[in-house]
């Protein structure tokens, strides 16, 4: 059983030979290839070489498309903070309010900023690993994506105190979520890891997420044309939106299984669960 079969069986609740294992090793690829981080996250060849090196060194059950949320913020006019010690970060959001967001053209996955670079790397990785190792791309969830545009404080301010603007913003960024996710899938990604950190108990109270964000999350999920894994973003997943995931499952034909674990539980779970293997994601970095 190869990594692709192992992960796909896991997603469908079928037997596997062992638990699929992976860690988020993006920047580590640059270390292995001796590539500076700015090049790694700006050049498709560099990212592909980094993932090849990670596979050779560690041999995990997953290959990552370029994991860099700052590229999304950049596509919306934000500034990127480059570092030689960590993945790029959002230095400042591009837009100050919802009106400014609605007035700007929607970023084009094939043309805007570094988005085409990510798609190019995804295509090349898909060609190399097709049906041998699954290739997943991480995308911020529909509820969290506006924070890439307005900054977390700006999005919190909107979400908590301006319901009409919240709906407008969700609708607008939701279009990008769908376009970007589908572009990654068309480029060859096996599936999308949706990091919906705003769904966690640390970020929002359950009722707020259920009332203001869950309907939107459901609507957006139903428009993505491939498998999605719902990631906790490092927190306790509040109401795991089973209904939303059901939409995804209905589209893909895959029963979506979701578990939220902290790294401190990972080892114990790996030891315990041979017959009920489940994909779990740790965090090396938080772009």
């Amino acid at each position: 059983m190869n990594a692709y079969e192992r992960v796909m069986n896991t997603l469908q609740g079928l037997p596997t030979d062992r638990v699929p294992v992976f860690a988020v090793l993006g920047a580590y690829g640059g270390k292995l290839t001796g590539t500076d981080l700015r090049t790694l996250y700006s050049n498709a060849d560099a990212w592909v070489a980094g993932q090849h090196a990670v596979q050779q060194a560690v041999g995990m059950d997953l290959v990552l498309a370029t994991f860099d949320y700052s590229a999304i913020a950049e596509a919306f006019g934000g500034q990127v903070a480059w570092s030689d010690r960590q993945a790029p970060n959002v230095k400042s959001p591009g837009l100050r309010d919802v009106d400014a967001a609605l007035a700007m053209p929607m970023p084009d996955p094939n043309r805007t900023a570094r988005l085409p670079v990510i798609l190019a790397a995804t295509r090349r990785l898909a060609e190399t690993y097709r049906e041998r190792v699954p290739l997943f791309a991480a995308v911020p969830g529909p509820g969290a994506l506006p924070s890439m545009v307005l900054g977390l404080e700006g999005w919190m301010e909107t979400l908590l105190f301006d319901p009409p603007a919240t709906l407008q913003m969700l609708e607008w960024t939701g279009r990008f979520f769908v376009d970007w996710s589908n572009a990654l899938l068309e480029a060859g990604a096996t599936g999308i890891i949706v990091t919906e950190s705003i769904a966690s108990a640390e970020m929002t109270p359950r009722r707020l997420f259920a009332e203001r964000l869950l309907p939107h999350v459901r609507a957006m999920f139903s428009r993505v044309k491939g498998p999605m894994l719902f990631h906790h973003g490092g927190g306790r997943l509040a109401p795991v939106p089973a209904a939303a995931l059901a939409d995804c499952a209905a589209y893909t034909g895959l029963p979506c299984r979701v578990e939220s674990v902290g790294l401190d539980h990972l080892l114990a779970l790996l030891l315990e669960a041979e017959s009920s293997a489940t994909v779990r994601a740790g965090q090396e970095e938080s772009p």
Binding site: M156, L160, F161, A201, E202, M203, T204, P205, L208, R236
Partner: peptide, 14 residues
């Protein structure tokens, strides 16, 4: 006790 969220703390600050 981990029973309030960042959003609630944000509102409390406001």
């Amino acid at each position: 006790q981990e029973t309030v969220s960042l959003a609630q703390t944000f509102v409390a600050a406001k």
